[in-house]
Amino acid sequence: MSALLAISSAPLALEPLVTALEERQQARGEGCGAICTFLGVVRRTHQGREVRHLDYEAHEALALRAFGIIADEAADAWPDTLLAIHHRIGRIEIGEASVVVAAASAHRDASFRACRYAIERVKQIAPIWKHEFFADGAAWVEGPVADPADETLRREAMERACA
């Protein structure tokens, strides 16, 4: 079976995630009624500056652990929902996907919400860093301090998922 959770330097595609989810939902006997997907794609500009390319760095083992935590959180919030999360690392060009998320549920409402929740949580707690390269320099993008136990962050992700 294809991996649900992965970190890879190879280009990302949606199909392996959808296949991985379908295989597992069918193995459970039910199949799934809805699969919602999200691709994060590298933009050409950031705060008005032209981006040349990005370089992602991860603590790979810990990032996979974080993805597992997120999948468990989603399954708690939306029973019988399965998540697949693949993140790319290394150099990524404009227009290429850096992250792909897919959520499979019996019904569309849960899959849309779980998909949004998952990408918000990935950005909050996964130990993955984005280094932006511009024509005139480079900068690390830094957001929250990664802490799965931070309930304020988690609530924020849930609010965005259910908005």
């Binding site: 992602y56 130990p127 830094e142 929250p144």
Partner: peptide
């Protein structure tokens, strides 16, 4: 022991 800077989480 790994030390982790703030992650890329968007503001």
């Amino acid at each position: 022991v790994a030390f982790l800077p703030p992650v890329s989480g968007g503001s």
